[in-house]
Design a protein around this nucleic acid. Structure first.
Lengths: 77, 77
DNA sequence: CACTAATGCAATATATAATTGACATTATGA
DNA sequence: TCATAATGTCAATTATATATTGCATTAGTG
């Protein structure tokens, strides 16, 4: 369960909505730092935060997050 | 960020694959208890575990997890 | 019924996500 | 160029996910 790498399009989705890291964070109810770390892929967020990011940015979970090397990786934009 | 309720179809997906909680847990590299708690909706798993469950059960994240009350809730089966 | 696999459920321990506060750096606009 | 917004990052602390162990309960199967 440890070797995998998670990639995401959170930054892309956020910018598309014209939101700053802080605005997204406040909308969801987390800290700016948490958003920054998630965007940087620095850690492994909770499902709840992922779902709230998806809801706020009008994306699906699958569009936002995937395992690096997944075959359909190029599909989620 | 706290009032929301997360629902999931992890149990359904696991049974469809003919796996026990323990087999799924071992395949993913977590504990049986972790799978049991996730299926029971008792807590809020990490994205990494969610992605590994999706990969192992051949489901998408969106098919497995959603916010209760989401309009397209009836679509993810 | 007896035996075992599968699941549920606690208590405690550990790892790590997430917060808080602060400061540095990089845009960006007046 | 100056000012400020936005982002990066770090240290310290808190909250919580996950592991571990053990035992109880349920579901099948002989």
């Amino acid at each position: 369960m440890d070797e995998i790498v998670i990639e995401n399009h959170v930054k892309l989705a956020r910018v598309e909505q014209g939101l700053t890291q802080n605005e997204l964070a406040v909308a969801i109810g987390v800290t700016r730092q948490t958003i920054g770390l998630i965007e940087a892929g620095k850690y492994n967020p909770s499902l709840k935060i992922c779902l709230l990011i998806a809801q706020t940015t009008h994306k699906t979970l699958d569009q936002l997050f995937w395992i690096k090397g997944t075959e359909d990786e190029s599909l989620n934009r």
